[in-house]
Amino acid sequence: MNEEIYKAMAQSIIDGEPEEAEKLAIQAVEQGLDPLQAINEGFVPGVDYVGNLFSCGDVFLPDLVMAGEAMKAAVSVLEPEMIKQGTERKMLGTVVIGTIEGDIHDIGKMLVGTMLSASGFKVIDLGVDVPAITLVEKAREESIHDQGVIIGISSLLTTTMVRQRDVIEALEDMGLRDSIKVMVGGAPVTRDWVEEIGADGFSEDATGAVAVAKELLKVA
């Protein structure tokens, strides 16, 4: 009987239907299903399926994003239930992301966040125009109870990209550089720049960012 609802859950992700995913999540709660099991056996297989199709080139980026949105809708219903029951979803790690101070460009960072979150990372998106110290503070807070914390910094302008370095320097000053990884992104970011500032990784697109994050936390 659970098989049927799990199948429907996976399908709601594959179809990228947040309303349907939310409905099924509510249904699961009402039926007294284990919320953690609903995620892992119902929704996650849908994400994996879309992810595989994407790797094969059979679906496009919007399919992936819509699957991510559907997943988010389901998790937001099931998460409070898990907290009530004292269970917790095992995440791959935590990524604190933001577009650096002075820069308001949102979309690349948003895409990276969606992809990371759909892939099983806890994502804390601090938005745009974020001071380096705010990113570092948040990451420090997370690192108290999480071994795998990454800061992801986005910039679209060459003039704001220079502030990506500030994050790394702040981590060094606070003695956190060894425990918190840093990945950077944005149109002007090149491998040379990554090496110059000593970041741990970079990617030119959102799906690549997931691979980098997994590699950095050795959870691939």
Binding site: F54, G57, F60, L61, L111, A187, E204, D205, A206, T207
Partner: peptide, 9 residues
């Protein structure tokens, strides 16, 4: 148009 697979310009 953005790229269908990467979303890139």
């Amino acid at each position: 148009s953005s790229d269908l697979r990467t979303g890139a310009y």
